[in-house]
Nucleic acid binder design. Structure first.
Lengths: 191, 191
DNA sequence: CAATCCATTTCACATTTGTTAAAAACGACT
DNA sequence: AGTCGTTTTTAACAAATGTGAAATGGATTG
């Protein structure tokens, strides 16, 4: 719970009794590699905050290929926002890539957050918009880029992530074949 | 002003006095093709709602190429959200592609909206999140797609837009060269 | 009408990426 | 160490896209 509290403190001060209330309200969950936080067709009634680990969000396209939409790691929320907000079934998988530990905010807990933290609505709005805008920015910058620049961009944008995820997943996120990514890595190391 | 009012009514009912207050608060602006609503380096102190016309948001990448980030048309808000929210200078151009007409919400008008429309904060949050998620979804679906599928997707996602914008802008949005787009269009029409 | 400007198309060739298949490397487990 | 299963690399060839330059087309203007 500690790193979630720290994260919240970067947005708004928290007193001891608020922290106690949060600790009572929220739960911890540990996942092993390849376990799912959410699967296609399920309703999404919780938001998770990643204290430890890496997650990937993916789905299957028309050709049956796994497409990784993005990765999320420590100090980020993970949720199917559309499924959670509109109470429709999820259209994507949320899978733990590594051993991981998350703080779970059930829907009822989420709705109670503003009673504990008065500025909760503002905080969550800022976090949501910032996260969406960053993802949109990253994605839109990738369109039309060469495989090599997409890979290099990923390395600079997520320097600690590349060696925590299988290459196949990364290739799928970059929109290239794993063989191409392998070829590119070879080119980059040597010269 | 009429179509903006109609748009708002799809979110929340509006009485005549509210509509009068809105009409007094907001202003209309007309732009010719290639005129700018916002330029790189400017502060963004207004939000525009497109009643008529098409806009494109673009910037220059490291190689000096124009990259079109997206298009916006009737019944959509257009703004550099980061520049507006965080009061930093804009990093992109917002340009009218066609003759166009927008409703301007100055920052002060925007801040007064919740006094006229009690649910304004909720409405604007829903609109913002939905718009960001749609753009993110579109963009992330484009990564790794072939030029042809990106073009066909665009035609189905924005059926009325393709013939309102120059091909060069569309190619830049799709992340391909104009010559490639031309080649693809030729392939598609014939068989 | 000719002249001009700009958007679009076309073409030949270069480069990048996908495809298919196989080999190599790695890890977990016995 | 040996085996199984998975991930990663390699290679040869095919297909898609970029590049650079030129031709075409349409609209506008003198």
């Amino acid at each position: 719970m500690e790193s979630f509290i720290q994260y919240l403190k970067s947005f708004t001060p928290l007193y001891a009794d608020q922290i106690d209330a949060l600790t009572a309200l929220l739960t911890l969950e540990k996942l092993q590699p390849n376990e799912y936080l959410l699967e296609v067709g399920m309703y999404c009634n919780k938001i998770a905050f990643i204290q430890q680990g890496v997650f990937r969000i993916y789905f299957y396209n028309n050709e049956g290929e796994e497409i990784t939409r993005y990765f999320l790691a420590e100090n980020q929320f993970v949720v199917d926002l559309n499924a959670f907000n509109n109470q429709v079934v999820s259209s994507e998988y949320i899978q733990s890539v590594t051993d991981s530990e998350v703080v779970i905010l059930s829907r009822t807990a989420f709705d109670q957050m503003s009673t504990i933290i008065p500025e909760w609505d503002k905080v969550i709005k800022a976090i949501t918009e910032k996260a969406l805008m960053e993802k949109l920015f990253n994605r839109s910058n990738m369109v039309g880029q060469s495989a090599k620049s997409k890979y290099l961009d990923f390395l600079t944008t997520h320097p600690k992530l590349a060696n925590r995820i299988p290459l196949g997943h990364l290739a799928s996120y970059l929109g290239i074949k794993q063989q191409s990514l392998s070829r590119i890595r070879k080119e980059i190391v040597l010269p």
